[in-house]
Design a protein around this nucleic acid. Structure first.
Lengths: 352, 352
DNA sequence: CTGAAAGCGCTTACAG
DNA sequence: CTGAAAGCGCTTACAG
């Protein structure tokens, strides 16, 4: 605590430098209007004393409030996945709002690129100090973050990354390794002569970050020289009927598929299909801790779910912006989340 | 933030009650020396205004520093498991020390009950405001926490619980379910006619919280009506030679053991044995993210490790005390940790 | 380029 | 039983 005998604050720095604390404050915050000479002297003393500002006092005295924008998909009827990151945002917000930080959410529609662009524009018009976003639409996210760069607004990606788009931080899974883990689990008890099916279900497969998961999945088979044939299908309509149609056809063409890997949270649609068709000898693995998936996990139709702590991702992303903007601290450029394995037996203790 | 237009603080309460802010402060902190009448009036206004104290200002102004004691096993050559909770404690400490909280660690020796008693006495003599402990020695922990109760010092258990010993909170695994998960993983690819071996390695098996893990493990076999015979051995000396001796003997008596489950972090000694004896067709599952275990996980000798976020446990335990003591908040009486599954493929992203 | 002074919301002696 | 005043460490106009 600052009250202990050996704590040095602005007052002591000012005393040693023979200036007022206002001047010390100017140097600490890199404000203009201080001669090079006094600036240098003060910085030396700061270093010598290893001065640590008291954030409590700083935020208490400051009037300036900091605004963070959060740009994520709206919770839709189709999937309530984005409910969870939202909780992380609220948790972070509750923690830091007493420090004068305000978090404002902006929601876009996952089936409508334009809504992303519209919300992004609103953020820019509003004028914010930091942004956290899920770059669901790569092209549009690129444009938006380029604007942020020009305005020197730091931004953090969650859920998936655009590596070349220098963000303050990426907080999310190592998608390749995640697919790798999926392959391990899927094959752990599999016979080597059987086939494996990979299913991508998304309206935008051509522009789909998550293809890295499939790449990782395949590399597990290569690395371990497994002989199983990997069949792949892309389903571009996310409704059940489309999924059922494609699944029927692929299972008809390949009768000896023993295991299915779905590269995202829509695994529940495949589970519904397997259940309806009474195919209970096929292993099924997919992604994310959402209601529908847990239901099928519980019924034994989904064997494993992989999850990357979406709530924690969002929480950390907000806190990373807070660290940079308020505390002047640095944050890791990449924070890979754990690749969590969820089963019927442990799901009740899972913490998103 | 407090600076917004509609925030009411002690000043406003004082104005409305027609008293000084000092009196308001007395009421807020339940201090003596206020007439029932004014006390009542002030409390009404507090309620009406839904007054939320500003912790920043409170801790900044306060001189009173709060001391938390942490009573955990010393890191020994035998296992560095307790290094990890220590990191959690340090992380919590770093976060709250600026609020005037001090965390003091006390270490005992896992092979010496007396050291626990000695350290516990030191804590009591020191005079602290809260305690977090690992009740490794049940009897001694019971005595100690009874003293704490008399002195009205809140305490939090981590790692394992003593349910009847009313603590502020237990933060750790649901041991029964954890064993259940172990059984699921162990049997996921097993043949039904083979035997399973459960190994308890501990100097104090008779007084061993962790037997619940075995109970959970067994109940999985019951619940799923699995036919596998479960063989069990207790090894009361933790050194490699003793483990090797017992393992040799049990594998000699039971030649058709296909899978081994070790109920704690000493699984690496069994792994060493299997490696030395070139028994690479036996599945092995055990506990905890420690160096030696990860090594064997990586070599493919250990199939899965189960882990309960020991760092997070300790972090939360300290924060729970902080919540109660400083913020006057309430905390959950039981906080079960996730039952994490660690494999060769995902361990590099694991977060303790 | 620099400083004196008021203030953030709360706590703490001290005086009465 | 109650209040006036100083202070926690920092920030912010304002004046020069």
């Amino acid at each position: 605590m600052e009250k202990n005998s050996t704590y040095f604050g602005v007052k002591e720095i000012a005393r040693r430098a023979n200036v007022s604390i206002a001047t010390v404050d100017r140097v600490i915050h890199n404000r203009t209007g201080v001669s090079e000479k006094t600036k240098k002297k003060i910085n030396e003393i700061i270093k010598e004393l290893d001065y640590q500002p008291n954030i409590l006092a700083s935020r208490l005295a400051s009037k300036n409030i900091i605004i963070l924008a959060v740009l994520i998909p709206r919770v839709s009827e189709e999937t309530d996945f984005w409910e969870v990151p939202l909780r992380g945002i609220q948790r972070a917000d509750a923690e830091i709002k007493q420090y004068g930080i305000q978090t404002i959410p902006y929601f876009f529609d996952l089936s409508d690129k334009d809504s992303f662009v519209t919300q992004a524009r609103l953020i820019l018009e509003r004028g914010v100090h930091g942004v956290m976003l899920s770059p669901s639409f790569i092209e549009q996210a690129r444009n938006f973050t380029e604007e942020c760069q020009k305005l020197k607004i730091p931004y953090v990606f969650i859920d998936s990354n655009i590596p070349e788009q220098r963000s303050l931080s990426y907080i999310g899974p190592h998608l390749l390794k995640s697919g790798y883990v999926g392959a391990k689990l899927l094959t752990y008890r599999m016979k080597s002569n059987k086939k494996v099916l990979v299913v991508n279900i998304s309206k935008e497969i051509e522009n789909y970050n998550y293809l890295q998961i499939e790449e990782g999945f395949r590399s597990y088979f290569n690395d371990n020289q497994m002989g199983n044939e990997i069949v792949r299908i892309d389903i571009k309509e996310t409704d059940y009927l489309s999924v059922a149609k494609h699944m029927t056809s692929v299972l008809h063409d390949h009768t000896d598929i023993e295991a299915i890997f779905v590269t995202n949270s829509r695994v529940f649609t495949v589970a519904t299909f397997l259940k309806n068709k009474n195919k209970n000898n096929i292993s099924l693995i997919g992604y994310d801790f959402i209601k529908e998936n847990i239901q099928y996990l519980n019924e034994g139709i989904i064997d494993f779910l992989i999850c990357h702590k979406p709530e924690e991702q969002a929480y950390r992303a907000v806190m990373a912006l807070y660290q940079t903007l308020v505390m002047g601290g640095s944050v890791d450029n990449i924070q890979y989340m754990p690749i969590d394995i969820i089963t019927k037996e442990n799901y009740e203790f899972y913490q998103n």
